[in-house]
Write a protein that binds this DNA or RNA. Structure first.
Lengths: 267, 267
DNA sequence: AAAGCATGATCCATATTGTGGATCGCAGTC
DNA sequence: GACTGCGATCCACAATATGGATCATGCTTT
């Protein structure tokens, strides 16, 4: 019972549903040009016929589509509907949407909205600004363990000290395996810095030259933890601009938290 | 075996997935205060233990959440993630989002974005303006057969004549059963009017006093059919204001279609 | 307060359902 | 023209989901 997810949530009942969900997650994380059957097979560890059967079922349900010529699989329109309805409930994303757009426009760099999901941060939205040098380390749908990346750091830093320690301990194994360039000391330092400054700064730890700046959004209920962040090439996050970006980010976070406090989200 | 979940897509393989999808659709269509197990059972026709087992599996997958005290079920955060990724692929909603907001703000009434899904129009987004008299006939997640409501009419009117006839014929049964107040003649008249005017006007056919105005959005590929629409009380859609609203709607539709033509949606 | 009712959670023997090794089919490539 | 990689599909096997019946719980009734 060290960590769940990635190691499966086996257990209860109907497990084709769990498998289907895993496939959907994988499709969601894939870039725009679709996913091949083989990729699904090797990613999920399921057999080829099983993967295909599940995909067919998902297609019948409208949650997945298959391009008739390339034979690649995509998320389908029904997924769009689901997400839209869910977003309604999780008001955060709906409210954050415009803020992310504004951030991308005003800074010219890439802006993100991520939410916490178990021990991971999932990127729900990416918007690009018009500056031609862009970091493509993070895309919509990507999922990194808490503690990794600007958002992962900001989210950890926003937790009570004990919880933060627990989360990082739980994630240590995954991080060690998937991000060998990260040491626990680097993470702890960055978290400490984020606590002090009020925002996290990732100085190219994940990928050299790709810097990130993140600030957590805390809902009134404690849950609904989200994070706004920016990514840019190193030269665009030097101290003077860092301060400027942090101020913009702080402005959006404030606006968001204020709207979250308004009692009437769902008219 | 008369109907399963609105006619069913029975057939292929792994059918727990189809059932799960039906449950998800139902949850998506439910209002904000969650869904009781009993409602799921009676809606889907599944047995109580089966429904519960599927719900448990969906909970394990993060697609559903259960409120521990009320025992009601909601869409979970993972659904949000999925939808966000799918929306990326279906650029339409992403692009439409702001337009719907603007429409709601500028008109003061309720604005909607709907997409065509098989023979149905699904409401992906609803934004309310600040006018205190509002129509709550249509909510996000709702699904009406094509031919019903302002959007359903606009979408049919946007089809080639033959397809439109085919769709209406296919939907006649459902419409007859679920919307007894609608006659085929009324639908045909409204469609004809929409073809002539370039937008549809629903004069309270679904619900007395609740008027709607819709205009289809056609993507460059023919697919991606969406629809922007407005709903208001009857007094707010009299001829002079109707023209004004139609102009606003047309402006947003034009903007949207133009952005759809830009080749680079996914940077 | 106790009985009654409605709704959710759970058991467990049954058979329906999904499983995956092996096979076939189709492109693109050498 | 044979090869290779990948997707689609068969089919005997057994693991899996199924649902009638039962128990648990919270809320209303008199």
């Amino acid at each position: 019972m060290t960590n769940a997810a990635t190691v499966s949530e086996a257990a209860a009942g109907t497990q084709s549903i769990g498998r289907a969900a895993a496939i959907l997650r994988f499709l969601a994380a894939s870039p725009g040009h679709g996913t091949a059957l083989g990729a699904v097979v090797s990613e999920t560890g399921l057999s080829k016929p099983t993967s295909r059967r599940i995909l067919l079922a998902l297609i019948a349900a409208g949650l997945v589509e298959q391009d008739p010529v390339s034979r690649r699989y995509f998320l389908g329109p029904e997924a769009c509907v689901l997400g839209s309805a869910a977003a309604h409930r999780f008001g955060l994303h709906r409210l954050a949407f415009e803020g992310v757009l504004r951030l991308a426009r005003e800074t010219g760099d890439a802006a993100f909205f991520q939410i916490r999901r178990n021990f991971f941060a999932v990127c729900l939205q990416r918007e690009d600004g018009d500056y031609p040098l862009r970091s493509h380390v993070l895309a919509a749908g990507d999922r990194h363990p808490l503690g990794v990346g600007a958002a992962g750091i900001a989210l950890v830093a926003a937790l009570p000290e004990d919880d933060a320690r627990a989360v990082l301990a739980d994630n240590a194994e995954i991080i060690g395996a998937r991000y060998p360039m990260l040491t626990r000391a680097m993470i702890d330092d960055t978290v400490a810095e984020a606590r002090a400054k009020g925002y996290s700064l990732n100085r190219g730890l994940l990928f050299p030259g790709s810097w990130g700046l993140g600030m957590a959004v805390r809902g009134p209920h404690g849950r609904h933890d989200g994070c706004l962040s920016l990514a840019a090439v190193e030269s665009r996050m030097q101290p003077e601009r860092e301060a400027e970006l942090a101020a913009l980010l702080a402005g959006e976070v404030r606006r968001l938290e204020q709207r979250l406090r308004e009692p009437i989200h769902n008219p």
